[in-house]
């Protein structure tokens, strides 16, 4: 099985290739769902639109309950986008525990969330540009990303 702490670092490096207006370097930076939501907006702007984004609380120093509330909305959005737009039903994949992400900045659970974002990117209408961006990354990161995609594909 995958080294998920290592995977988390590789996926954060990949997410750093997107433009976001919030901090996006550490696992903690991903604990309120906002950086992920901004990336999703770039991946599928018609689906993850302004109205969807406005359901999230965007403030510095959110308490952990509000972070978890954001993360639940982000996770549900990802799963609905997979079903409704991509026609992908993910089965048998261990879903991220958003409580552990929001309260404890857990890198294993964060890796599961970021892995689902990766799945959106490489299956969306603009997947070609996302895949080309992945191919510009260092080989060790590409390797981790490949493993993560392969695991997801085995659960579709």
């Amino acid at each position: 099985s995958m080294d998920r702490s290592h995977l988390c670092q590789s996926l954060i490096k990949w997410l750093n290739t997107f433009n976001v207006t919030v901090k996006n370097q550490t696992v903690e930076d991903f604990s309120d769902g906002i950086a992920v939501a901004q990336v999703l907006r770039q991946i599928a702007p018609d689906y993850f639109n302004e109205a969807w984004f406005k359901k999230l609380k965007v403030e510095d120093d959110l308490n952990w309950r509000l972070k978890v509330s954001n993360l639940k909305k982000v996770l549900n959005g990802i799963l609905e986008y997979n079903m409704e737009v991509l026609g992908i039903q993910i089965q048998g994949f261990q879903m991220p525990d958003v409580n552990l992400i929001g309260e404890h900045y857990d890198s294993v659970e964060t890796s599961r969330l970021l892995q689902l974002v990766l799945g959106c990117a490489v299956n969306c209408a603009e997947k070609e540009s996302h895949i080309h961006n992945i191919l510009k990354m260092e080989e060790s990161v590409q390797q981790m990303i490949m493993n993560a995609i392969q695991e997801l594909m085995s659960k579709e």
């Binding site: 737009v85 991509l86 026609g87 299956n123 997947k127 080989e139 390797q143 392969q150």
Partner: peptide, 30 residues
């Protein structure tokens, strides 16, 4: 630990994988 891909092969393997991903058809609304 000896369980990874053999050295020297990984670049081709990565290219193969991502090329196959590019040609994969997805999208319920496509």
């Amino acid at each position: 630990d000896g369980k990874g891909a053999p050295p020297g092969n990984s670049e081709g393997m990565l290219a193969n994988f991502f090329n196959s991903l590019l040609s994969k058809k997805t999208g319920a609304a496509a």
